[in-house]
Amino acid sequence: MNIFRLAGDMTHLASVLVLLLKIHTIKSCAGISLKTQELYALVFATRYLDLFTDYISLYNTLMKLIFLVSSFSIVWYIRHHKIVRRSYDKDQDTFRHYFLVLPCFLLALVINEKFTVKEIMWTFSLYLEAVAILPQLVLLQRTRNIDNLTGQYVFLLGAYRSLYILNWIYRYFTEPHYVHWITWISGLVQTLLYADFFYYYFQSWKNNVKLELPA
């Protein structure tokens, strides 16, 4: 475990907690894409299949449980909570996220490190995570108004993956045979998707103006 990875995991945890906090306290999910949350729940469900078979460390198991429980609770809140669901704007959140699932699955069948069910599901979860933010970014472009918590959520989510890239660079230079092209490329693609959001986030922060994404 290196500092980049720990910082990455903590940032990822913070992003999920910020979101849960927002939904739980103000009982609203305005500006949040349910599609992205469903994709993230699927990412964790397909990535942590080894939760009960491979014990890595208490930290690893605990974090997996937290991510699974939090991502599914967020989906539950937005879909079923009697107050929160009213603030979900399904007419705006129209990204056809099923069109993301199938290509990622087919790609995982073709490009993977080993042709086993577990490995293919793990690879699928990597590709899906890379594109899972798209419905949320599209929704932000549409609604134009980004409230602070949503902006922080997306920012933390992008920061976590950027820190993971530093972690991969660090591990590449410190651990022999640590080469995972699939992880690195999908992680890089994911981070690049956030690049323009980061740009506008920093602009708004620097000029101390409300975060606006160009249409």
Partner: peptide, 10 residues
């Protein structure tokens, strides 16, 4: 068969 290293990253 060399067991491939478990996925230790989240």
């Amino acid at each position: 068969v060399k067991e491939d290293p478990p996925k230790d990253e989240l």
